[in-house]
Write a protein that binds this DNA or RNA. Structure first.
Length: 270
DNA sequence: ATATGCACCTGTGTGC
DNA sequence: TGCACACAGGTGCATA
């Protein structure tokens, strides 16, 4: 479910409430996530204080001091919710972590594609292979060209490849390519300098606006306070098959690409 | 190198 | 109403 803007929104919520709070209890109700939760390692968080909450692409990293990091990935359906202590567990609530003064953090994930683990900062190999942040470091057309050098695949697949550029998922890949006026099926080597410039600018604009709107809640994403985002109100193409393009009124098309849905305007995107 | 298919799971919406 | 099927925000592996 969550791409960079949703994870960033959750990060801000957790940072506001969890920084300085101490873990008092860890309960693992279902350790069989995408990767089995190391229960002993997670329980060893008890007594530690959250010093900072960071993000790398779609990963959340809570700094718990002494070079230790609590790493979380939300997969497709993962949610982190801060609730008052004593709140009874909801469905698919696999992990709950109690804090001394921040209430209770609940990890809920019906599909269990997410996971979490505690790691030493120097052994975070999961995030070592990620490409540059899609939002943050200013990636211009020239930088994008360098990142795509040598690949002949289509631009949509490249944008979704976290080793090329990190943080973009299926919603925002579609939205970025609409804003750039580029068909998702265009091959990377055939993109002009102007195309790459527009894609780079669209990436910053779309992700920036999505963060400002606190993410996309088109079915079941909510932030750590249970609030929806509002980017679904301005989606140009994603999940809009058959609906009129907001620019030219041509019906939006959908086609499967690499096993995922691509949405595009056949008139505005070439 | 890369495309495809599948696997991991549950939930929801569709058409019959 | 039930049932079968397609599809869902992500990743990672095996195979061609």
């Amino acid at each position: 479910m969550p791409e960079l803007p949703e994870v960033e929104t959750i990060r801000r919520g957790l940072e506001r409430r969890l920084c300085g709070a101490r873990v008092t209890r860890v309960e693992i109700r279902e350790p069989r996530l995408r990767r089995r939760v190391d229960e002993a390692a997670l329980r060893a968080l008890v007594g530690r204080r959250v010093e900072a909450v960071g993000r790398r692409a779609k990963y959340l990293l809570a700094d718990v001091g002494e070079g230790l990091c609590w790493l979380m990935h939300l997969g497709m359906s993962g949610r982190l919710l801060l609730v008052p202590s004593g709140e009874p567990p909801g469905e698919h609530e696999h992990v709950r972590v109690e804090f001394d003064r921040a209430g209770s953090l609940r990890y809920r994930d019906p599909r269990r594609f997410g996971w979490m683990r505690v790691a030493r900062v120097e052994e975070l190999d999961e995030i070592a292979g990620l490409g540059p942040e899609a939002l943050g470091a200013e990636i211009g057309g020239a930088a994008l060209r360098a990142l795509l050098r040598g690949t002949r695949r289509d631009i949509k697949a490249a944008l979704l490849d976290q080793r090329v550029i990190a943080g973009i998922g299926n919603i925002y890949a579609n939205e970025i390519l609409f804003r750039a006026g580029v068909r998702p099926t265009r091959r990377c080597p055939r993109l002009s300098g102007a195309d790459l410039d527009r894609i780079a600018r669209a990436t910053a604009a779309v992700l920036g606006e999505a963060v400002a709107r606190r993410g996309t809640s088109f079915s079941d994403y909510f932030d750590s306070d249970g609030l929806p985002g509002t980017f679904q109100d301005v989606l140009a193409v994603f999940d809009r098959r058959g609906e009129p393009c907001r620019r030219c009124a041509t019906p939006i098309k959908r086609r499967a690409q690499g096993g995922r849905s691509s949405f595009y305007c056949p008139c505005c995107q070439r």
